[in-house]
Amino acid sequence: MAALSSMAISCLQSHSRNESYFLAYKPSQFSKPLFINPSLNKPRVSISFCLKPSDNDEMQIRQESAGEEEEEYWVVTAVRSRYNEIVIVDTVASRYLLLDSTKNVHSLVNKGGQNWTGCYWDEFSSLPPIIPNGPIAIYGLGGGTAARLMLELWPSIQLEGWEIDEILIEKARGYLGLSELEKPTSKGGSLRVHVDDALSPSQDVSGRYAGIIVDLFADGKVLDQLQQVPIWLDLASRLMPNGRIMVNCAGIEEEKAATNGKPQLLLGDSVWEMNSTIKILSEAFPGQVSWKRTPDSQGLNFLALTGGLPHLSDWSKKVPIRLSETVQQWKLCETS
């Protein structure tokens, strides 16, 4: 997840009477998780919207405070579902999906056909070479950002994306190109979308997946259910032999804002112990969890990987060159 920078607000006609809302914008400090789109090169802030019914069809937007540098963006659609406040915004370079009260970015689509994001989504594309042949589940599909790059890099891959919010999927199909990802690739790869609760016990089908990507958040935090050992054991039961789970674990709550509103970076091989999700994973799979941290420019997110530390040199040779250096940054979780 990420946040956009301060931008000048423009008005856009709503596409439906049911999508007419009043949106108030103000910049604020990121909630975790986060990332920066390098092309924006602006201070890290999130966009806070307050959705309220409007009396007319036109999208009304009020800018409550402006940043020092401004870049135009347009609200494409905004609607409240059972699970989310959903806002899709455009900039010149990209389109973003903002969710829930934090309005962190949960998906992005770059314009011009570039599917690399410079963010943790790219890391998920390193998973296929270190798992058996078989389908990969994405729990927390959002608008399909991770799936889009994975299908480009591994066009024969079979993906199953899970998202609980039916309206979010509807908007992603209409505005984020998700429907195109559901069509088979030239190599037979595909994305099958499930609108359901990925963590429901009814989904426990033993040995179903070669890999599972977990990117499940609400209100800027990893889902509370994922702070329990039994749920991870249930998810592991869905894996084929030698299958792996890769997890977006967000950041460290204890990190305090330093100068210029930037979080203080905590370093060291045991820093993973300050991330609650990785700690739970390590309890569930002792000695079998690896971790890495994205750089400050990508949001300081932690990632975790089950199944023990892969042979990093071999792994590096099997991924696209853009990922070859980053996969060598994985470390086994070892207590201090």
Rank of each mutant, 00 (worst) to 15 (best):
L216V: 08
F217Q: 01
A218E: 04
D219A: 14
V222L: 10
V222R: 02
V222F: 11
L223W: 11
L223R: 04
Q227D: 07
Q227R: 11
Q228Y: 15
P230T: 06
I231P: 00
I231G: 01
W232Q: 02
W232V: 07
D234R: 14
A236D: 02
R238F: 13
R238N: 05
L239I: 07
L239R: 04
L239Q: 04
M240S: 09
P241I: 12
P241H: 06
P241Y: 12
V247N: 01
V247P: 00
V247Q: 01
N248T: 07
N248F: 15
A250N: 02
A250E: 00
A250F: 12
I252H: 08
I252C: 04
I252N: 05
I252E: 06
E253M: 04
E254P: 00
E255I: 04
E255R: 13
K256N: 05
A257S: 09
A257E: 06
A257G: 04
A258T: 07
A258G: 14
T259C: 06
G261Y: 14
G261M: 09
K262W: 07
K262L: 10
K262E: 07
P263K: 11
L265P: 00
L265Q: 10
L265W: 06
L265N: 05
L266C: 00
L266N: 03
L267M: 08
L267I: 09
S270Q: 10
S270W: 14
S270G: 08
V271N: 04
M274V: 03
N275T: 02
S276W: 15
T277R: 06
T277C: 14
I278M: 08
K279P: 00
K279F: 15
L281A: 07
E283N: 10
A284R: 06
F285S: 01
P286M: 10
G287L: 13
Q288S: 13
V289H: 10
V289Y: 14
V289S: 05
V289M: 09
S290W: 14
W291T: 02
K292R: 15
K292F: 15
T294Y: 12
